[in-house]
Amino acid sequence: MHKNQLALEAIKEGKWEEAAKYFAEALEENPNDPVLYVNFGNLLASSGDAERALKFYEKAIEIDKGTATAYYGIGTVHYNAGDYHKAKTFFDQAEKYGLAHKDVYFMLGMSLYQLEQPRLALPYFLRAVELDEQDASAHFQYGLCLAQAGHIQEAKKEFEKTIDLDQHHADAYYNLGVAYAFEENREEALKMFDMALSIQPDHLLAGNGKRLLEEMI
């Protein structure tokens, strides 16, 4: 078995030091393989060593500027560091060089959402759910953007889909409650807030929403 594959198997088993050893050996044998640099970068990023991970991603691009997964890796590092402008730039590059995975579209959407541009994020979240209808997080984020754009009925469907996929998604219940409250359906809104609180008793927003509705009633 190739040492790159041995490293990936080691990662699956949680043996990170062993994986790093295999990657290092693989790079000694194939120093111009960009995939090895990306995989080693992913390992370093997962272990919290973002600075070294960036160097490995950058080396992969130096060898082959079309290494889409390296751009995605750099984008993820910048996103985790809170630099959403840079993150979006590199996710765009990943897509440009052919990475059409739903995670790319999801992270493009997340970057724009963090940049307070939910309308621009909408098509990316839509594409993410089209590529993976079982992704609860993508449905939830898509719902948030729809709600902020004023498309309440469509947002409700996405929150309901989120709950179908993840029955313990407190935020989806809360936001569904907000949507019902917006429609002045206070009874259903209260049910949703109660569901959110049953899953997460310290959910402050759901608690506040419930209190306000009860006062109104």
Rank of each mutant, 00 (worst) to 15 (best):
L8A: 13
G14K: 03
K15S: 06
E18T: 14
A20R: 13
A20T: 08
Y22C: 09
F23L: 04
F23W: 06
A26H: 08
E28Y: 08
N32L: 15
D33G: 05
P34A: 10
Y37Q: 06
N42I: 09
G48A: 00
A50V: 05
E51W: 01
L54N: 10
E62S: 08
Y71Q: 00
V77F: 03
G82I: 11
D83S: 06
A87E: 02
F91M: 02
D92I: 07
Q93K: 15
Q93H: 07
E95P: 05
K96L: 13
L99W: 02
L99P: 08
M107W: 03
Q114Y: 12
Q114D: 12
A121V: 01
R127Q: 09
A128H: 06
E130R: 12
D132C: 13
D135I: 00
D135T: 03
S137N: 11
S137M: 04
S137E: 14
Y142S: 06
A147Y: 13
G150W: 03
H151I: 11
K156Y: 11
K161V: 07
D164S: 14
D164L: 13
D166V: 08
D166T: 04
Y174S: 15
N175K: 10
V178L: 15
Y180R: 00
Y180D: 00
A181F: 06
F182R: 13
D194N: 13
A196T: 09
P201G: 08
L204A: 11
L205R: 13
G209A: 01
G209P: 02
L212Y: 00
L213Q: 01
L213H: 01
E214I: 00
M216G: 00
I217H: 10
